[in-house]
Structure formats: C-alpha cells, structure tokens
C-alpha cells in the first residue's frame, strides 16, 4: 500500500475533507432525489425523465444568467412556480394517460419523454457545454484543513430545508395526509372520496418543481448541456431505493450514504470503482431489504 492509502493519525485533515465532500455531494444528490422519491412513492411511477427536468432547470439558470445577468439564487424563487406549471402540463399531456396503465407502459412513456426532452434541448440550444459563473461559484470557504465551495454549501442547506419542508408537508398537512392515503391504497382512497387524479397531478407537479429548483442550484457547479441530467439521475434511483420509496428523510440519508461510498471509495480504491461500489450497494439493498434501509418491510408493494 502506498502512503496515500494509509489512513493514519497524520491524515486527520484528509479525513475531514472527505467528510465535508461527502456531506456537500450528498446535498446535491438529495436535492435531485427528493422529487423523484415523492413521485415514486405516491404515484408508483418510475419517472425516467426526471434527469431531463433537472437539465431544464439548469438551462433556465443559464439563460437567466447569461441573457439578463440574474443570479441563480434569484432564479430559484421564479423556478419553483415555473416548474410547478411544467409539472401540471406534463401530467395533463403525458402522465394522466398512463397513470393506471401497467409499469411497462409507464416506463416506455417516461423513457420516451426523456429522449424527447433531450432532443428538444439539442435542437433549441445545440450540444454546446454552457457555463453559469456567478460570483459565488468561485468563493471558497476554508476551515481548518478543509475547503468548501460557497455554491455547494448553499445547495446543501437548501436541500436540507427542502427535505424538512416536504417531510412536514406530508406529515402534518391535510393534503399531505391525503397524498399518503392515496399512496397506501388508491382504490380505498377513491372510496373515501379522495380525488386521486388531483392527488397524482399535485404530486407530479411538486416533484417536478423540486427537481427544477435542484437544476437551478447545481447550474453554477456543473456544465449545462442537453444530456446533463443523465449524469445524476442513475444515482438518484440508487438513493431512492436505498432510502425507501416515498421517504423524504430516507432520501436525505440515502444521498449521504451514496456520496460517502463514492467519496471514500474513490479515495481508497480509485475513482473507476465508484459506480461498481454503489451499484453493489444498490443490488444488496434490493436483495436483502427491498423496502430500503429505512422503509417498512412490505411497503414496496403497497398500492401496486
């Protein structure tokens, strides 16, 4: 073993930095996964186009910044209603027709939507890599032996806030309770007088609003291009399975676990191993705890 791989007391600084990197990267993954787990958990739809809505959010930040010099943090507030609207329209045009269809039909539909959105972006904005460079993306905060990027810290804090807000919404509001009821048993919910179509529409719109906002927040950190969503979306599925379907806090914890596997695995074994490592984790969770690390046993079949 070479000296870099030996974790001795002299390397507390390295450990601290790896810890910070894990938390910040986990924040980005959580931002993306929260919307996905909501849609997954309540509608039982695997939204393969999730990454493309992230990409659209990144383009919104890019165009607002390059054409009107609007900071992404200002765009954030506008993006939530915009993407809520995008979610409603997508639901009406695409999802409503397949919400009661088989899982295969839903998968084909969302994969089709994903490819269509990528190509719309390609036609409208070309395949060029675009960069959003507000002042805060190059601000570095140093603390002891660790360094943080300001944009990444903000993204992490908003991820925590968003997770807590959605958790509270689901737990303590009437609409949240209605949504959970629909997730548990769609038919029974209908018999209790719940308009399930409205619940699904609302769920989809909230999920898309969350991922649109995530896109705006990650735009200062990563290049914007038509297939940018693919870079994150596979990870988001791992996170959602790990955390349990529809579990907000699970998604947050799952994100941190995936980020830890990635960061520590890359350091110890090399970055080429990172996908092997977290997909092994993914398969292990599916095999031994199919409801996720924090989910209830059997929850995965509810409402199916």
């Amino acid at each position: 073993m070479d000296s870099a791989r030996r974790l001795g007391p002299a390397q507390i600084g390295v450990l601290a930095q790896l810890g910070v990197s894990t938390v910040l990267l986990g924040g980005i993954y959580a931002l993306i996964a929260v919307g996905l787990t909501l849609i997954f958990g309540i509608m039982r739809v695997v939204n393969f186009a999730h990454g493309e809505f992230l990409m659209l959010g990144m383009y919104l930040a890019f165009w607002a910044f390059s054409a009107y010099a609007v900071d992404p943090y200002v765009v954030l507030f506008v993006s939530i209603p915009i993407f809520f609207g995008v979610g409603l329209v997508t639901y009406a045009l695409v999802m409503r027709g397949v919400i009661h269809a088989s899982h295969n039909v839903q998968i084909f539909t969302t994969v089709g939507l994903s490819t269509a959105l990528q190509n719309v972006a390609l036609v409208l904005w070309t395949g060029d890599f675009r960069i959003v460079r507000p002042w805060h993306s190059s601000v570095v905060i140093r603390f002891a032996d660790t360094a943080f990027n300001l944009s990444q810290v903000v993204a992490f804090l908003i991820a925590v806030a968003l997770t807590v807000a959605l958790f509270a919404f689901m737990k303590w509001t009437h609409t949240g309770r209605v949504m959970r009821a629909t997730a548990q048993d769609g038919d029974a919910a209908t018999l209790m007088g719940i308009d399930t179509d409205r619940v699904y529409r609302l769920t989809f719109a909230i999920g898309i609003a969350a991922v649109g906002a995530a896109g705006v927040l990650v735009a200062p950190l990563y290049a914007v291009y038509p297939t940018a969503g693919l870079q994150f979306v596979l990870l988001a599925y791992v996170v959602v399975v790990l955390g349990g379907l529809g579990d907000m806090v699970g998604a947050m914890l799952g994100s941190l676990i995936v980020a830890a596997v990635e960061v520590i695995g890359s350091y110890l074994f090399g970055v080429a191993w990172k996908e092997v490592l977290y997909f092994v984790l993914f398969i292990a969770v599916l095999a031994f705890r199919p409801a996720g690390l924090f989910g209830q046993r059997g929850a995965e079949t509810l409402g199916a």
């Binding site: 994150f232 596979l234 990635e262 960061v263 970055v271």
Partner: peptide, 17 residues
C-alpha cells in the same frame, strides 16, 4: 486514475489523494 466523464461529479477524493 481513470474515470467516466459522463458520471464524474466530484474530484475532491482524487485531489486529496
């Protein structure tokens, strides 16, 4: 070190090494 450019989100572990 090799990595896939389609899925690399963080270089800090490599940089630490």
């Amino acid at each position: 070190e090799y990595y896939s450019f389609t899925s690399i989100n963080d270089f800090t572990p490599i940089i630490a090494k």
